[in-house]
Structure formats: structure tokens, C-alpha cells
């Protein structure tokens, strides 16, 4: 046997996984859902959104960047951690302009789905209503900065055959925003444009000339909470 397997515990449940796997993936293999907004399987983790915070042997750690080790005791579905997650989600809702009723991603949005999961009725923070641009200059994609949560999924995941990224951050601090390489994006295929929209956890990247295709009631999170496909 070439791979080393380790035993660890999540919320009292005995789990087993390959040594060195990130907690979030190891948990998934064991039927435990750890929510995230910035992590996506197959990409190098970023630890940006902190939604996946868990207690590892009593200390808060991001499950997407912490490898699992033998004997780890992980706490996931506990009041302290769920409180942290709900606070982050509420902060994200007031920090941008998230008008769910007019957003095409509504019903399939991961931020919204997590807010549903944690039963957010109203964010506890005052709304900031920041002034942000909608950029529709690209032939295939609409970029709506009002909804962007700066998770970097598009930067990390949408690349051409030479592994060059179509997206990048520009500006700094609270002004930071997603920029698109127009020269590359002008030649973007329809398939990659669709992948860009799908990789975005919110409605910040939308493909042009097609919208609201899935009727209410058939969208991703209309009937079952996010993570239902993982939880056993």
C-alpha cells in the first residue's frame, strides 16, 4: 500500500482519509459537508473567505488549507463555528449590493444558499450600498462588481491552454476588483464563458445573450440546502 491513511474525528464521527489531504476534501470523502465560498475542488486552495473555518484540536483553522493528520479532532457543526460562518455571510451581504430578486444567479447562488442554510433573516450590520460598476464591454461576459465577493475562483480556475489566467485583481485594499484581460477574453470560447459563470459562487460573472433559463423551482438550491449531496 503506497498511500498512508490516517484516522481523525469530525464532531465525534470517526473518519479515515489519505494523509495530507485537506480537511475539507477529507471530510467530503467521509460524508461531512464543510461549507466554503472560495474553495473549489481541483484548484489550489486560497483560504480567502474563511467560511470553512473549523476547530482543529480546539483552534480555529481553515479546512481548505489545513492538511488532515492522524488523530486530529475537528469540530464543524457546533454553535461557535456556525456563528462565525453566519457572521461572515451577513458581512458579505451588506458589503456589496446583493439584490437577490433581480439577480440571475438567484436560486443557484452559493452565498445565498449558505444564507438559507444558516437561516439569515436580516444581516445584523448596516447596509453599505457601495457604488460599483457593471462592466459589459466584453463580448461574452458581464462583470458585475456589485456582487463580487473577491474569492479569486475565476482568477485561479479560468485559464487558457498555456495556463494563463483570463482574470486578475486590479487596484488595492478596499478598492480591489476583478479585472479581465480583454485581448484574451475577446477570443474566449462559449464553453469557457459558461465555465466562468459557473465557477463564480455569486452572480458577478454572467454570460451574455442568454439568461434566466432555469425556471424557479428547478434551480440548484430551490428545494435542498447546499451540501445535501455530500452529507450522509
Amino acid at each position: 500500500m503506497s498511500k498512508n491513511f490516517v484516522e481523525f474525528i469530525i464532531d465525534g464521527k470517526k473518519c479515515m482519509s489519505e494523509e495530507g489531504k485537506y480537511i475539507i476534501d477529507a471530510a467530503k470523502d467521509n460524508g461531512v459537508y464543510i461549507p466554503t465560498l472560495c474553495n473549489i475542488e481541483g484548484l489550489k486552495p486560497k483560504g480567502a473567505c474563511r467560511i470553512c473555518s473549523v476547530l482543529v484540536n480546539g483552534r480555529p483553522m481553515t479546512a481548505c488549507t489545513t492538511p488532515v493528520t492522524s488523530g486530529m479532532e475537528i469540530e464543524n457543526n457546533i454553535a461557535q463555528i456556525e456563528g462565525i460562518r453566519k457572521t461572515i455571510i451577513e458581512a458579505l451581504f451588506v458589503e456589496g449590493n446583493h439584490f437577490c430578486p433581480s439577480c440571475e444567479k438567484s436560486g443557484s447562488c452559493e452565498l445565498q444558499a449558505l444564507a438559507y442554510k444558516y437561516k439569515m433573516l436580516v444581516p445584523r450590520f448596516p447596509f453599505m450600498f457601495p457604488i460599483r460598476e457593471v462592466d459589459a464591454s466584453n463580448p461574452k461576459l458581464i462583470k458585475d462588481h456589485n456582487r463580487c465577493i473577491l474569492c479569486k475562483r475565476c482568477i485561479r480556475g479560468i485559464r487558457d491552454e498555456n495556463d494563463r489566467s483570463y482574470f486578475a485583481f486590479k487596484k488595492r485594499g478596499h478598492e480591489v476588483e476583478i479585472n479581465i484581460n480583454h485581448e484574451m477574453a475577446n477570443k474566449m470560447t462559449d464553453r469557457l464563458a459558461r465555465e466562468s459563470m459557473d465557477i463564480c459562487p455569486v452572480g458577478a460573472l454572467l454570460i451574455k445573450e442568454s439568461g434566466f433559463r432555469t425556471p424557479i423551482g428547478q434551480r440548484k438550491y430551490d428545494h435542498l440546502p447546499i451540501g445535501s449531496d455530500i452529507e450522509k
Binding site: 451581504f93 449590493n97 439584490f99 430578486p101 433581480s102 444581516p123 450600498f129 457601495p130
Partner: peptide, 15 residues
Amino acid sequence: GECAIMGGLPALRNG
């Protein structure tokens, strides 16, 4: 409703 909670569609003018 959303308008009472966060301004809703009328709040699109907030910028």
C-alpha cells in the same frame, strides 16, 4: 419582504 429588509429594487438608485 426584501424592500422592507434591505431597500429592495427601489434601493438600486442608492448609488
